[in-house]
């Protein structure tokens, strides 16, 4: 049986899950954009002009929802597998240093 996590462990897990959200939501947004490109929606500027403004709201909504879901999953996993929060934060920092420039470049290349 897994021991009940302490209040401190819960707070660490919540903080790490928030960092996961910060990376998962924009990554999901960019993946949605890539999917739209693959579908051929956004290649032609004429099609971009015809795109409804609600498309943006939906894209953001889905990205935030999925980011929150991944963060919730990360929170549950972190509570089940206690470990060094410092090491996990360092790994997330590294992931941020790699992911954010990649997100920026992809968003620039596929506007």
């Amino acid at each position: 049986m897994t021991p009940t996590p302490s209040a401190e462990e819960r707070r660490s897990a919540l903080a790490l899950a928030a960092l996961v959200f910060g990376l998962a939501a924009p990554s999901t947004y960019v993946l949605e954009r890539l999917y739209e490109y693959a579908r051929g929606d956004s290649v032609n500027p004429v099609l971009i002009l015809r795109t409804l403004d609600t498309v943006y709201y939906w894209r953001v909504g889905v990205a935030v929802w999925w980011g929150a879901s991944v963060a919730g999953l990360a929170y549950a996993l972190l509570l089940r597998r206690p470990g060094s929060a410092a090491a996990r934060a360092a790994r997330l920092s590294l992931a941020a240093l790699v992911l954010v420039p990649v997100i920026a470049v992809v968003a620039w290349v596929f506007p």
């Binding site: 928030a18 959200f21 953001v60």
Partner: peptide, 10 residues
Amino acid sequence: VAVVCLALGG
């Protein structure tokens, strides 16, 4: 969108 998500996560 990335700015807002990163800021809220942080």
